[in-house]
């Protein structure tokens, strides 16, 4: 009796082992086959967002791999090190991409991506993620409304601190009646990001990029396994 029980258990265990090994083989081979394509897709996707706000003729480097580690800063609204990107044209820095956070949205933080030209002009702004009320505060998404394009070409020189507010508060930026908290938060965050750029201009434009292509390649893979 005991012997048959042991035998049955062994049989089951071997059976399970067999399928586990088989599954592992199938999975590892798929993983190996798709790994490179996945890393590439992740990178293209990132680049797609950046390419929306950095004009194509203003850079010739691989922006995604030219990263800057930016320490937490009140002007960026960041509490951890954030990543910036630098676009260069013929070796000359042309645009810097920052990832500021607006802490005071209607329902929590709004994550932004802001591209600033070397002369301090905003090249473009996009919202990466937010939790604003659907149908009310979500017109900051470019897919829903061109509102966010108002920032294109604005800078500290052509807009005074007073101008960097929504019209309702006496500034130059439009907002929709009934939903002003969200645009206020975004305008404030972009304004601060421009100030951050002005303050750290030299470092952002000239500091040697710390990351090598090899490292960012591995990062792409890491991203996927998350």
């Amino acid at each position: 009796m005991r012997r048959t029980l042991a035998k049955a258990s062994l049989h089951s265990a071997l059976n399970l082992l067999f399928f586990a090994v088989l599954g592992t083989i199938v999975l590892s081979s798929t993983y190996l086959l798709t790994r490179d394509t996945i890393a590439q897709s992740v990178e293209t996707e990132k680049l797609k967002l950046i390419a929306q706000i950095v004009p194509q003729d203003s850079y010739d480097n691989n922006i995604v791999q030219s990263t800057l580690d930016l320490p937490p800063d009140e002007l960026l609204g960041t509490e951890e090190t954030s990543i910036g990107y630098r676009a260069t044209l013929k070796g000359e820095p042309s645009v810097v991409v920052l990832q500021p956070v607006a802490p005071d949205g209607y329902s929590g933080k709004i994550f932004l991506i802001v591209a600033i030209r070397s002369n301090g002009e905003v090249s473009g702004v996009r919202v990466v993620s937010h939790h604003e009320t659907p149908g009310l505060g979500d017109y900051i998404e470019v897919a829903k409304n061109p509102w966010i394009k108002q920032f294109d070409g604005q800078s500290l020189t052509n807009h005074t601190a007073q101008d960097w507010q929504v019209k309702k508060d006496g500034g130059k930026f439009d907002s929709m009646a009934g939903a002003t908290i969200t645009p206020r938060a975004v305008v404030k965050a972009v304004h601060k990001a421009v100030q951050y750029f002005a303050k750290h201009r030299d470092q952002l434009l000239t500091q040697a990029p710390p990351s090598s292509p090899d490292k960012s390649g591995r990062e792409g893979v890491k991203e996927k396994t998350k």
């Binding site: 798929t30 798709t34 996945i38 897709s41 992740v42 996707e45 996927k224």
Partner: peptide
Amino acid sequence: YEMNAYMY
């Protein structure tokens, strides 16, 4: 994996 690679 396949979707991650080809329909990101």
